[in-house]
Design a protein around this nucleic acid. Structure first.
Lengths: 332, 332
DNA sequence: ACTGCAGATGTTAGCGCCATCAACCTTTTG
DNA sequence: CAAAAGGTTGATGGCGCTAACATCTGCAGT
């Protein structure tokens, strides 16, 4: 409920004995005004507890310091890392993120974006490169600056800052082959909704099969990703997949959960079985063993995307593929 | 950059051959209009890709489906759990959260809230009960509905949905005493900025000392909370605090990190040393041992707060203390 | 035939702000 | 010392939308 007695520039103007226009100028520090007037206005505004009404100024044509951010989930720490990069950058530029979570649904994403666009944000950050046609059309028409993050394998609407999922998957497969891990299991989550994990796995499989490897077990749970899920999936996997010598997990949470299963059940890692995840999240450093994983510059990705959408350089939209890096596991 | 060629109701009206007011009515489904007009307007809106301008309608006096949410950090999963509750609830009510992160700074929080208020949100969710006077004044004057979450020991601005940190701390101390853990270490993070952790520890200490216990080691790192920090703090603690038989950690991340240290160094838990955390985050279930902790209804807290601020019941603001529950550790 | 009233549409005003222009006043400059 | 330049303030209009009121039609009730 917006109180109707919230003071406006008119009220401040009356209290300071000037016109409303002068108050506007003083508060924005734009144009000419005397020191005397400046002080009177500042005092009046402080006394009344005046708060600027952005709705009105944006409507009038000012830039809206609002950036819409749509992420697939908050359950995976991956996105809180990206978010941190976005948030830190936008804060320093006096802009504010508005978040939405799509739960890996393209239609939910479209609804969310349409909703956000109704606030006339000056920018938008989306996850992944796959969106509904309706979303793309709405975004383009809105004139908001858009950046797509996370992925680099595909065609962005405009700018993109992501990593190549295919390269990451293929790199990991080559590592497996080099280490002689040929009988491999794959564990995933979110059903088929996590499209980036799917791309990764597809490239991983192709590369592995092109070598002498084989996927002897594959299980993509419908549940959202979590350490607990990873632990459970690993338990079933080790029971069913005889002769399996390595597990590739869709992400670090699953891999860490798998590691917990191994520790609890005294399965030696990587002696009995090798484990690999994806993202190189900070918490991996605290585990009893450093798991093999692919480092992705999550924070940096957030920073770049935020900078791009916040500033309005007229350059043509960059499509940057950030580098991933294989992190080899070891006992600590 | 908001494109000036974004279609307005006027454009839709022209395309549909009706007045702009009629478009407004049709799109809101309010008042009278014929089926024929309804269809023409809907078609025109779809063809032009019309997106409603909320700025204008809120300015005109409509309720703003925006809720400001200020959290101390995203680095601790605690807040993403709360956030999930808030987000799910608001989504189902067609409202949108706008997030801000204060990094445990009261002045940053005030800046953030003032910023948010400039968008005329209809509600606000804040963390904790301690805020600057300026913030409280601004919030009250804004007329937005406010809910404060997390804490129950203090006086809220209006509504509050939190847990008693003091009760939780004291309960844990009683558990320690009952188990005969008398030589206790305490590990914390965020310097003195995490006021709720401080309240908890204070009550814990008082209760412990009132029994036969003592705090033989205390270390509150300035770093943000993480598993890695917990692991490092535990390492130093076990080295320095001779005869220590239990560690109370400010939260589950620290406690899990401490557990990782113990596993790596073959320190038996709880044989050699007992560990306790706070919050009962879901990932604890994946660890090789269930750590002792205090369960807090994080998601539920988010749900209740979101419901309160989203709906505009005229009841006087509820001040609810949600129940915490001690979770006793065990090996899995 | 005349009221009455509901259905269907349009007109007007104004939310709070800022770009633009206009007015006036003070310096500076040739 | 007039003219130009610059400092200081105010009046006006309009961004896109919706509440309130106005208008006009058709048709039921008497």
């Amino acid at each position: 409920m917006v109180n109707s007695d919230r003071p406006t520039m008119h009220d401040v103007a009356a209290a300071a004995g000037v016109s409303q226009m002068t108050v506007s100028r003083v508060l924005r520090g734009d144009g000419y005004f005397s020191q005397d007037v400046k002080k009177r206005v500042a005092d009046a505004a402080a006394k009344l507890g005046y708060i600027h009404n952005r709705l009105a100024s944006v409507q009038r044509g000012m830039k809206n310091p609002m950036i819409g951010v749509v992420l697939p989930t908050l359950k995976n720490h991956v996105f809180t890392d990206v978010l941190a990069g976005i948030n830190d950058t936008l804060s320093s530029l006096n802009m504010r993120p508005v978040f939405g979570v799509s739960e890996y649904s393209a239609t939910a994403e479209e609804t969310l974006v349409r909703d956000m666009l109704s606030w006339q944000p000056s920018g938008l950050i989306l996850s992944g490169l796959e969106h509904t046609e309706g979303l793309k059309r709405a975004v383009v028409q809105s004139g908001a600056r858009v950046a797509e993050i996370m992925d680099a394998d595909g065609t962005p609407i405009s700018a993109s800052f992501g990593v190549s999922q295919e390269t990451a998957g293929a790199d990991m497969a080559r590592h497996f082959l080099a280490r002689g891990h040929l009988r491999v299991a794959y564990l995933g989550s979110q059903g088929g909704d996590d499209l980036r994990a799917a791309k990764r796995f597809s490239a991983f499989r192709d590369t592995l099969l092109a070598g002498d490897g084989e996927i002897i077990y594959e299980r993509i749970s419908k549940a959202p990703s979590s350490m607990t899920l990873g632990r459970d999936l690993a338990a079933t996997c080790l029971q069913k997949a005889e002769g399996c010598d390595a597990i590739y997990c869709a992400n670090d949470d699953l891999a860490a959960g798998a590691l917990m299963h191994c520790i609890t059940n005294e399965v030696s890692v990587p002696g009995d079985i090798a484990l690999a995840g994806f993202n190189d999240l900070p918490f991996l450093a605290a585990l009893p063993q450093q798991i093999t994983t692919t480092h992705t510059p999550l924070y940096e990705m957030g920073v770049r995307a935020a900078k791009y959408v916040a500033l309005d350089s007229p350059d043509d939209p960059p499509k940057e593929a950030l580098k991933t890096r294989l992190v080899i596991g070891q006992t600590t």
